[in-house]
């Protein structure tokens, strides 16, 4: 088991090192897409800034607090973006029949599939998210005790799992429909709602985003725990369970998909 983990770890590093080397051949693409990513995030931040110039609070949340949630959101979506970026290509591989090559190696298929791509600009996003959180917490006078840091890591871990799981489940629709783009786009849109306090939504959506498609767990509930622990619902304490359970479900859906795919004729 442990030897296996070491094997996979080493393999992943080698695969990614090669992948990054190969991507460097397309330097312009890397630079342009990184700049694009940074600008689109700055645009989102600008929207908040403009918004809070006209209204002082959003459902009782201040500008700095919203910034904190946004920073948390950026960190939470980064692992999905960095390590699971290949999932966006799944429907092409399934349609073209190129997916069958992933069956032929003595490797876990999800690992092998995802290892073929790593989104380097996601690391820039981590830096940006960290900076936003650092700024917001300084403004809010938040002290980073060991306990708080531990809590932050734990909630970020489960939030990342939620993001990954939603993305994987939505993409896996392609195993059955071969046209999963609309579902994937919907999941991507829904994810954007995670930037806002779930409490700004009314009853139906709050219920939806908490229990059905739990995007509240991506940024809002964990941030609430950091910023206003007295208001935080008990739900946040089960967030690691939610993250792990949702990822397990996503893995199950993936496995069922992999086993039911028959490929194209050759």
């Amino acid at each position: 088991m442990f030897a296996n983990l070491v094997h996979y770890g080493r393999l992943y590093l080698r695969l990614e090192a090669q992948y990054i080397k190969a991507r460097m051949n397309y330097r312009v693409d890397f630079i342009v897409s990184s700049i694009g990513m940074i600008f689109s995030n700055i645009a989102s931040l600008a929207v908040f800034w403009v918004l809070f110039h006209t209204i002082p609070h959003l459902a009782g949340w201040t500008f700095e607090e919203i910034l904190f949630i946004y920073g948390f959101y950026l960190l939470a979506v980064s692992p999905a973006q960095i390590f699971f970026d290949h999932i966006w290509q799944l429907r092409y591989h399934l349609m073209e029949g190129t997916f069958i090559k992933y069956y032929f190696r003595p490797l876990n298929m999800m690992f092998y599939y995802m290892s073929e791509m790593v989104d380097i600009k996601g690391f820039a996003q981590v830096v940006l998210g960290g900076a936003v959180i650092a700024y917001a917490s300084t403004q809010l006078g938040l002290t980073w005790t060991a306990g708080r840091i531990g809590l932050m890591i734990l909630t970020l871990f489960s939030a990342s799992l939620v993001v990954i799981a939603i993305l994987v489940i939505a993409s896996c629709a392609a195993f059955w429909t071969l046209q999963s783009y609309s579902i994937l786009a919907l999941a991507f849109r829904l994810r954007e709602f995670a930037q806002y306090p779930t409490t700004i939504f009314d009853g139906f959506f709050r219920f939806l985003f908490t229990y059905i498609i739990p995007i509240g767990f991506i940024a809002f509930y964990p941030s609430q725990l950091m910023l206003r622990p007295q208001e935080a619902s008990w739900l946040i304490y089960i967030s690691p369970v939610v993250g792990i359970a949702l990822f397990a479900l996503a893995y199950l859906v993936w496995s069922v998909g992999v086993n039911s795919y028959s490929g194209t004729g050759s």
Binding site: F104, P106, S266
Partner: peptide
């Protein structure tokens, strides 16, 4: 997985090598 360890496959015209490497 166990089967794959003792197997080599060429399937159609699709390469299993890493395209960009």
């Amino acid at each position: 997985q166990k089967n794959a360890q003792n197997m080599g496959v060429i399937f159609g015209q699709r390469t299993q090598l890493w395209w960009d490497l």
